[in-house]
Design a protein around this nucleic acid. Sequence first.
DNA 1: GAGTCAACGATTATCGATAATCGGTTAAAA
DNA 2: TTTTAACCGATTATCGATAATCGTTGACTC
Lengths: 222, 222
Amino acid sequence: MPDATPLNRISLSNQIRDLLLKRIMTGALKPGDRLIEMKIATEMSTSQAPVREALRELETMGVIESLRNKGARVRIITNEELRQLYDVRAQLEAYATGLVTELKIPLKSRLTESVKLMKKAARAGDSVEFAESNTLFHRIIIEATGNQVLLELWETLNVKTRTMVNVSRSSRSLIELAESHQAIIDAIRAGNPKKSDAVARDHVLKNKPAADMVDDRQAGAE
Amino acid sequence: MPDATPLNRISLSNQIRDLLLKRIMTGALKPGDRLIEMKIATEMSTSQAPVREALRELETMGVIESLRNKGARVRIITNEELRQLYDVRAQLEAYATGLVTELKIPLKSRLTESVKLMKKAARAGDSVEFAESNTLFHRIIIEATGNQVLLELWETLNVKTRTMVNVSRSSRSLIELAESHQAIIDAIRAGNPKKSDAVARDHVLKNKPAADMVDDRQAGAE
DNA sequence: GAGTCAACGATTATCGATAATCGGTTAAAA
DNA sequence: TTTTAACCGATTATCGATAATCGTTGACTC
């Protein structure tokens, strides 16, 4: 029987989670925006319960934050946290890049292809599409390590970063950014794991935002 | 007024989450054990809703897994995944240890203290207490970097690891394991970041379990 | 005896309603 | 005018009930 019906639909809470995640990543929902349970429930024609489950997931992922009895809002990532995010990402990417170099996994054509997409998006000034292909580039490398744990960790970091990054940047610097990936491709090709490690680390750190000048000890609520 | 009542209790779902987490970490709940929503709800004298929210959080954290319409169970971490976990942890710990060395953050006394606790637990054969103080040792280093993102990431990895690790190990090897932390303390003290990085990485990798001989391509369900 | 299928018990998924809480606002009191 | 207190609308937290789904059991057919 050539599979008739898609028997198991996705649960409502998962659908809601994915929808909200998409809106946050594309910027339709911005940092600080409130997520009101009944509003979402009504929009999706469901009850409150699946919405709450979705919100809890998003909260655990770190993309929203919710205060007891006060509801949830899209998490505001401080500059300092963003910098920390880049530091950690740098380590993970360095490890992954070094590893795929050592294992001599052939990635050149796929990586080159994703850089093309990046450039195209950059020229079009499409920052969402750019983020998409940029993510693709790095995901190709991480996936190639075969380390599923690493991939999942990196995904959540990446999601967090992107909730805020795609707000800024001119199309000029986007093109430069796209081109800067070539160094990674070359390093992998060259076959020196240590070198690849360093190049990938530098690539991430080069884009790490500068520290705020202000003496902001941003108060974090409980 | 000397604060009368603890106004904001913790939400039920959070209480449930913490309780279940504790049970999983201490081994009261073992990998594969089912988590039946109504059973938990009845035990806690609540309804099903908060339990489901708690389960969703645990699922996102990766400590349980749930299949549509079939419920949740404590996640069974395969040997392969455990190995991947160690690989990633090794990178994070190496980074953290190198960084605190570079920053010359004084940690010796606190680290030494936690090693004492480890040894004590090892002699007593108390594997839960051992895991506790072992975690403490590493957390001290990670925390000292001041990188909150790194800490959170490391915490979730650590939780995952511990759901399974505390099943095994003899008290003899526990003592050796405790003593092996001294090398890290010494490296930090010596003040060479590169060396610290390497020592910390090796420390983790030395405990990475061996690969299974079996050609198990463990099927992962949707 | 092996295979098929309907009915059953257990459990999850979702709903609709109620209780509790928060922030702000008005109105009375000082 | 400032302070205090009760009130109100909006929203979250929790409950109890119902619908949908799964695995299994046991009778029935061949």
